[in-house]
């Protein structure tokens, strides 16, 4: 608990964090940018708000993750912190959940700001589509979950690597692969006749292993008021919990074995 508080405090006073947090100001550009649209100001404002949120969370995850765990190891803060009577597990998880809390808080702020700018923009021009706030809300929730999962990966990579590049670039690679996995899987499964059984099996295994980030993407649902299937959200949530459980416990297991020399 103390460590969570300290981590948050430490993070919030960091300059990089402040720069990233100031990106919230970009929301002011949403109505301006939407105004360029021919006839879908409201839609653009929703897409843009969600995209901005996603962008801020992405940067926050990458930088926050490295600030919180990698830098602790690199600057040898671990020598002092881990010599306190706490387990490594609680250190690792405290750090993780401290950052999750920060991401959560940022998501809430972004959602509140988004609601305002969407309202303003939607008042400029009557859209043929309704604004379904629950869809927008769930899209925000899903983005938060998605980046929580990505953060889990950063922590996993940081649990064994000593360099700055491994966690950051591996996480970016996971991010891209996780975004593409569904599309590529669909593509391979569709071109059924040309590919051998073995290739398909390999594709399936990779599909199981890679995170499926596209399942967290509800932007189209939020923007174009598409009917949301709550069953899908439920399944994605379970998927999130299990996947996060795997990478966190794996990360803890590796971190527990690690030598800090």
């Amino acid at each position: 608990m103390v460590l969570i508080k300290l981590t948050i405090k430490h993070l919030i006073f960091d300059r990089i964090f402040l720069v990233l947090a100031s990106l919230v100001l970009l929301f002011a550009s949403v109505p301006v940018f939407s105004y360029f649209s021919m006839r879908q100001l409201q839609e653009i404002s929703i897409t843009m708000s969600l995209t901005l949120n996603s962008f801020i969370l992405l940067l926050m995850t990458l930088f926050g993750g490295t600030l919180v765990i990698w830098r602790d190891i690199e600057r040898k803060y671990t020598f002092t912190v881990l010599s306190y009577p706490i387990t490594r597990t609680s250190y690792y998880l405290s750090k993780f959940f401290a950052l999750i809390l920060v991401l959560f808080f940022i998501s809430i702020v972004n959602f509140a700001v988004s609601a305002v700018v969407i309202k303003i923009t939607a008042s400029f021009y009557k859209s043929s589509l309704p604004i379904i706030w629950s869809n927008i809300f769930f899209a925000f929730v899903m983005e938060f979950l998605k980046y929580s999962l990505l953060l889990g990966f950063i922590f996993l990579f940081a649990s064994f690597s000593t360099s700055f590049f491994t966690p950051v670039f591996s996480s970016i690679a996971v991010f891209i692969a996780g975004n593409a996995s569904q599309g590529i899987y669909d593509y391979i499964m569709k071109s059924s006749s040309e590919l051998s059984h073995l290739t398909k099996l390999a594709a399936k295994i990779v599909y199981y292993i890679l995170p499926n980030f596209s399942s967290f993407d509800l932007i189209a649902y939020a923007t174009y008021a598409l009917p949301l299937h709550y069953k899908s959200i439920e399944l994605t949530f379970i998927y999130f919990l299990l996947y996060l459980g795997i990478i966190l416990s794996l990360g803890v297991a590796i971190f527990n074995k690690r030598d800090f020399s």
Binding site: L6, K9, H10, F13, D14, R75, K76, Y77, F79, T80, S83
Partner: peptide, 14 residues
């Protein structure tokens, strides 16, 4: 125990 590592490093924003 009270422990001080060699060339200790602490959270420098504190």
């Amino acid at each position: 125990i009270g422990f001080m590592p060699e060339n200790p490093q602490y959270y420098d924003t504190l």
